Amino acid sequence: MDFKPLLTLLAIVNPLAIVPFFIHYTQDFTRAQRRRTVGVASFSAFVVIAASALLGIRVLEFFGISLASFQVGGGMLLLTSALNMLNAQPAEAKPNTKELQDGAEKAAMGASIAVVPLTIPLLTGPATISTVVIYAERAQTVLQMATLVGYGVVIGLATAVCFTLAEPIARFLGKTGINVMTRLMGLILAALAVEVMADGLHKLFPALR
């Protein structure tokens, strides 16, 4: 069984790095509201990954985009995310301060923040979606596709665990610990990004082999 897609997704999503955001958004929530937010965010992350795996290729075909081109573009996006992580920044593009304030205001008005911004874009964004689409194309059997969707379940569970234990994790790791973890995941992601781009370039330019 190939665990490379799971490692890549864990590196990109990196729910540990989102723990401070979760604490920020749910600081005024009751225990029941926080539990519901954890459940919705975890399930939403799974839905994004599953939908990307099952429908991503069809979307590419609809727009007439070759997978090789998508691999090169997706690989570049992954590499950019990895560079962000090596600087101890989350992999996906995050809202700026004003957007954070706007999100808090929406939460105060009763809008759920579990899907936006916790799931999209904090947990799953363009880098995550492009990664799933690339690996979905490589799935040759129904079992391999089911495994990829199953990895979405693992990501959802990892997210649920990290968010449920958010405050103890933040106290134990501290800002330094979370930064070190983010940099390590970024290094792994950079290596995987190079492999994805190299595979795409070989398909576009067979002479490179």
Rank of each mutant, 00 (worst) to 15 (best):
T164R: 06
Q27N: 13
G75C: 03
L55I: 15
I169S: 02
T124K: 00
S52N: 04
S42E: 01
L16R: 05
L60K: 11
L83G: 04
H24W: 08
F62E: 07
V142Y: 11
S69E: 08
A88C: 02
P117I: 11
L79W: 00
L122S: 10
L173F: 12
P126Y: 01
I178F: 02
I18S: 06
D28F: 13
A88P: 09
F163N: 05
L192Q: 14
Q27V: 10
V116I: 15
V133Q: 12
V153R: 01
S66F: 01
G186H: 08
I169F: 05
M145D: 02
G73D: 00
A190S: 12
L79N: 02
P90W: 02
Q101D: 09
E105V: 07
M185F: 11
A11E: 03
V132N: 06
R34P: 05
A45M: 11
T131N: 04
D2F: 10
Y25C: 00
V133M: 12
G174R: 04
L189T: 00
T119G: 10
L83F: 09
A108I: 07
R35K: 12
K106P: 00
A198Y: 12
N179V: 02
M145C: 02
M109I: 05
L86N: 15
A158P: 04
F43G: 14
F63C: 10
F21I: 13
V133D: 10
S42R: 02
V116E: 04
L83Y: 09
R35H: 07
T147E: 10
D199T: 13
R34A: 11
K94H: 13
T119D: 09
M1D: 09
K175Q: 10
V132R: 08
L55P: 07
G200C: 01
S52A: 15
A53P: 08
E99Q: 14
E92C: 09
T131V: 05
T37F: 00
G103W: 06
V180L: 14
L100Q: 15
A170V: 02
E99H: 11
T80W: 03
P95T: 07
